[in-house]
């Protein structure tokens, strides 16, 4: 005696129905919500860019509070004066620059060595200072990490914002906490005219981060690989922008 659920034909039919039902359910939901999700993601990107500039609703010493989604588009237009795309030596203005997917650009550049990568950059103004905000993207321990860095006219860090897809909660995930991000502010990026970036260093002799010209911030204990990922990301992605920022600063003066 065999049960109905053991029959081959039943198994095949069940599998087909399951695939169709689950597939169409997921695809349907994903399609209907796509608009809302991409809108939320766009707001998030604007919030992150403004956060790196130091425009946020932070009140306590530990909270990371963005401009609320309802106001962010307006604030973004107020503070971000220009969005530019850098391709080769060309710097062109492009109001859609923040839609560029830097992950795709990086993989295109990797696949095809002749491809000239499009680099989006945001030029903002705060308290009369011009700030250059650059995006970056790299790998942490488990998955991707990314962020924005606001750079001022003296090539110092004005502020940063980091985020991640799946770093270990309580360890690497803390790169998006204030105690990790705040010490970047004021760090020098350049040393004697060459780019050195900011290293996330263990055994830092400067745990309160009083020295701003040592190119180092204190690492998070227990998350070496995420920290190294941040260092590498800054060294690779921010470095690409430095000559262009220098050029823009010279043009302004």
């Amino acid at each position: 005696m065999s049960k109905l659920t053991d029959k081959n034909s039943y198994t095949v039919i069940f599998a087909i129905i399951m695939v169709v039902v689950v597939g169409s359910l997921l695809a349907g939901v994903a399609q209907t919500l796509k608009g809302r999700i991409s809108e939320n993601e766009r707001f998030e990107k604007q919030q992150n860019i403004l956060y790196a500039m130091g425009i946020n609703n932070n009140q306590g010493a530990t909270d990371v509070a963005f401009i609320p989604a309802t106001e962010v588009a307006e604030k973004f237009d107020t503070y971000i004066k220009k969005q530019v795309v850098i391709q080769g030596d060309q710097i062109t203005e492009d109001p859609e620059a923040f839609l560029i997917d830097i992950k795709q650009e990086a993989s295109k550049a990797k696949d095809d060595p002749n491809y000239q990568r499009r680099l989006p950059m945001f030029i903002g103004e705060k308290d009369g200072k011009t700030l250059y905000i650059v995006p970056m993207r790299g790998n942490g321990l488990w998955d991707a990490i990314w962020g924005f860095m606001a750079i001022d006219e003296n090539l110092r860090v004005e502020g940063v914002f980091f985020d991640h897809a799946g770093e270990t909660p309580g360890l690497g995930a803390n790169i998006k906490e204030r105690f990790f991000m705040d010490p970047f502010t004021g760090e020098e990026l350049m040393s004697n005219g060459t780019f050195r970036g900011v290293t996330v260093a263990k055994g830092n002799n400067d745990p309160r981060n009083n020295r701003k010209d040592d190119h180092r911030v204190d690492a998070i204990a227990g998350s070496t690989i995420t920290g190294d990922g941040v260092t590498a990301m800054i060294r690779r992605d921010v470095a690409m922008y430095i000559p262009h920022i220098k050029k823009l600063i010279n043009e302004q003066q």
Binding site: T5, F14, M18, V22, L26, L33
Partner: peptide, 29 residues
């Protein structure tokens, strides 16, 4: 009572993954 015994592992995994992904999509929106 309806899951075929031969592919029960796949069915279980698909059910759980589909549930979690659905919740994730809805939360994202």
């Amino acid at each position: 009572n309806v899951i075929p015994n031969k592919i029960r592992i796949i069915v279980q995994l698909v059910v759980i993954a589909a549930l979690v992904i659905l919740v994730d999509l809805i939360l994202k929106a």
